[in-house]
Amino acid sequence: MTPEQIALIQQSFAKVAPISEQAAVLFYDRLFEVAPSVRAMFPEDMTEQRKKLMGMLAAVVGGLSNLDSILPAASALARRHVAYGATADHYPVVGATLLWTLEKGLGEAWTPELATAWTDAYGVLSGYMMSEAYGAQPQAAE
């Protein structure tokens, strides 16, 4: 990721932060719509889970300029996800859901450049997390 991409991501997330609760609801509603099988991995009451999602995103976005600062937490998160039943096939679905949520939340501020920046950032982080969770980077099923 370039410094320009990092700046775009951080600026766009600053616009999402004030609507973080709605963004988290959008995210999980969409995730459960496109991947209903993952619903069982989550608690019935999603209030705390939504807060955790937005807190994790805030930490990641804030740490993009110094990836080494967020990698230990990403590694631990990846391992916890395995214990919850997450597989490598879930990562692309979550990524697509995140991008969809950001596009809906940002409206006209969602540009092709911003989409590329977020896609690149998610690719870097999810690739790292999959390697931490499953060893050598697995190929997700197409």
Rank of each mutant, 00 (worst) to 15 (best):
T2Y: 11
I6K: 11
L8F: 01
I9P: 03
Q11D: 15
F13Q: 00
F13T: 01
F13I: 02
A14C: 04
A14Y: 02
V16Q: 01
V16Y: 06
P18R: 06
I19S: 09
I19A: 08
I19G: 06
S20W: 03
E21F: 02
A24D: 00
V25M: 01
R30N: 07
E33H: 03
E33W: 02
V34H: 00
P36C: 01
P36E: 02
S37V: 12
V38W: 10
A40N: 06
P43A: 04
D45H: 11
D45K: 13
D45P: 09
E48W: 11
L53R: 01
M54S: 03
G55E: 01
M56S: 12
A58L: 07
A59Y: 13
G63R: 01
L64W: 02
L64V: 02
S65Y: 06
N66S: 10
L67N: 00
I70K: 06
I70H: 04
L71G: 02
A73H: 12
A74E: 02
A78W: 11
R80I: 10
R80Q: 15
H81T: 05
A83M: 14
Y84E: 08
G85P: 07
G85T: 05
A86I: 14
H90P: 10
Y91K: 06
A96D: 15
L98E: 02
L99R: 15
W100G: 00
L102P: 09
L102V: 05
E103L: 05
G105I: 03
G107M: 02
W110R: 10
W110A: 04
T111V: 05
P112S: 05
E113C: 07
A115E: 15
T119C: 08
D120N: 15
D120F: 13
D120S: 14
G123H: 07
G123V: 11
G123Y: 08
L125S: 08
S126D: 05
G127H: 10
G127K: 11
Y128L: 12
Y128F: 15
M130S: 10
A133E: 09
A133T: 13
G135P: 09
G135M: 09
G135E: 05
Q137W: 15
Q137G: 13
Q139P: 06
Q139M: 14
A141K: 13
E142L: 15
